[in-house]
Design a protein around this nucleic acid. Structure first.
Lengths: 106, 106
DNA sequence: CACGAGCATTTCTTGACAGTTATATAGCCG
DNA sequence: CGGCTATATAACTGTCAAGAAATGCTCGTG
């Protein structure tokens, strides 16, 4: 019986989870704050946070009954590494566009 | 009735689809080639290709009964743009590591 | 024109997942 | 201790996606 490990890609596929990461980018947040921001039920947010924890994209700090959630960007570096070889493609096209604009000023 | 549009994030969540994009990065491929490489059934690959088409990550050129698939990296630029603000985070940490190493030579 | 090659689409099954409500756990405070 | 706050987990439901098998479509070729 194989336990299917989720990946950062899976975590990012869900818009609410990307929203959570965006919120954590500015500062750490209480679970309750995230519930308020997302407009989901509290258990719904809690489940998304569990997924993000499991793929290592967030960490938690306990503070009595509260939980402070913080961003752990490392798994995004893996995604970025996968993306890197593709960057050449569209930057090529953008470069071509830029050259075109330079060579054809208004 | 809302038609749920898939996003590039959804497309990237599936490992086989990332593999297809990786194959198309080197050169255009026939659908049959992709079937051989992926080790999935032909209809299975065809369905993945449909998803990639729908989010604009590949395009198709007909050649009699054949289909040449090619990479269209533009939607990846969107993902890259989302990722950009995060890049500062881990590069900060890497910078810190580099400074540490510079200040503490072997 | 019949056949086969090359793909796409359909159909079906199974499993995963997002969301909800209900419940459990943990810690503060009166 | 009792009850409240904050969060996690459980149980359940509906939806959707991945995969295989069967079928359909298109076009070149004998």
């Amino acid at each position: 019986m194989v336990i299917p490990m989720a990946t950062a890609y899976d975590a990012l596929a869900e818009p609410h989870r990307r929203q959570i990461l965006d919120l954590l980018r500015t500062r750490d947040r209480l679970a309750g704050e995230l519930v308020d921001q997302l407009g989901l039920s509290q258990p719904g947010v809690s489940k998304h946070l569990r997924v993000l924890r499991e793929v290592g994209l967030v960490d938690v700090r306990r503070d009595a009954q509260r939980r402070w959630y913080g961003l752990r960007p490392e798994p995004l570096a893996e995604v970025d590494a996968w993306l890197a070889p593709y960057r050449a493609f569209w930057s090529d096209r953008l470069d071509a566009l830029e050259r075109h604009l330079e060579e054809n000023p208004q």
